[in-house]
């Protein structure tokens, strides 16, 4: 091994030189920026960063702030709901699409279309659809059902589901397309073999197809989870965190404290907590994924 190393290092020199800018960007901008943010979360920086250490004060304040706790809770509800529903919806849609139906292209385009819209546009559209004065409630009421009430965005307990509805509308199409690609990658022979054995269709999906689609599931998982953790623009456009604190999200807390409240220290503490949360999820997964491969 050790005698091989130098030659490996100098093999393909031109390619390695070409990769230096990218490597530097990754190291300086991403790692450096992250380290800087974490370091300054221990200071009492206000509008501008100032090296004035206060220990864990910012974290103590963060965890005793009601708004932060509500944000975490919202993220958990939204995240769990999004993950489960977008996978179920995406997979079921993909299976339906896979039944050699007519106009598949048309349906696929329709399903994927919302994904082409930004979260801001999605948020505004759904704000209007869910507005009781001229959205769904208004339409149903003017059709004759006078007592019909549907105003999730104006009811604190339901507002987060209103946001989730919009996110599902926007994001399920992508999961569907990924799943569909995965289904198409399954060898038709497997279907034939399973049918000859007389296994029911649902069992084929659950026991054979889904395990075979593991890489697709992981890709979709990474895309959906990262979307969940950084959700910000959707909430801003749709509810601006309201009513009250009902749809506040951690990313919005960071932004608001960074720019509006002019309290960088607090914002950095919050973003460090977000980073920590991501790492808790990602590191065990990465070790399993990549660590396993090396051994095998």
């Amino acid at each position: 091994m050790s005698s091989e190393r130098p030659s490996r290092l100098f093999r393909n020199m031109s390619a390695k030189i070409a990769a230096i800018p990218m490597a530097l960007t990754a190291l300086v901008v991403f790692l450096g920026g992250t380290a800087w943010t974490v370091a300054y979360s221990f200071t009492k920086s206000k509008l501008l960063p100032k090296w004035d250490l206060v220990g864990l004060d910012q974290y103590e304040r963060l965890w005793s702030t009601k708004r932060w706790m509500v944000s975490i809770e919202n993220l958990a509800v939204y995240g769990a709901g999004m993950l489960v529903l977008s996978f179920v919806l995406g997979f079921v849609l993909a299976c339906l699409m896979d039944q050699k139906i007519r106009f598949e292209n048309t349906f696929r385009t329709i399903m994927l279309y919302p994904f082409a819209l930004s979260f801001i546009v999605t948020g505004l559209i759904w704000q209007w659809i869910l507005n009781p004065d001229f959205g769904i409630q208004h339409i149903v009421r003017s059709a004759g059902w006078e007592s019909f009430t549907f105003d999730p965005l104006y009811t604190a307990d339901w507002a987060i589901f209103g946001v989730m509805l919009a996110a599902l509308w926007q994001g399920s199409g992508l999961v569907m397309v990924l799943m569909l690609a995965g289904l198409r990658g399954i060898d038709q022979e497997i279907w034939k073999a399973a049918r000859i054995d007389g296994i029911p269709a649902w069992k084929i999906y659950v026991m054979i197809i889904i395990p075979m689609m593991r890489p697709v599931f992981i890709t979709a998982l990474v895309l959906v989870t990262s979307g969940i953790i950084k959700v910000y623009d959707l909430v801003v456009a749709q509810t601006s965190g309201g009513p009250g604190l009902a749809t506040e999200m951690p990313a919005k807390y960071v932004y608001d404290y960074m720019f509006r409240a002019q309290n960088l220290g607090q914002a950095f503490a919050a973003s460090t907590m977000m980073l920590l949360a991501v790492m808790i999820v990602v590191i065990p997964w990465a070790m399993m994924e990549f660590g396993g491969k090396r051994r095998g």
Binding site: G244, Y257, A261
Partner: peptide, 19 residues
Amino acid sequence: ITPDTTSQINDLFAEFFAD
């Protein structure tokens, strides 16, 4: 008061008026 304090008070009243 600083914008930081204002922001905390704003959060409080956002909650108070909605709930």
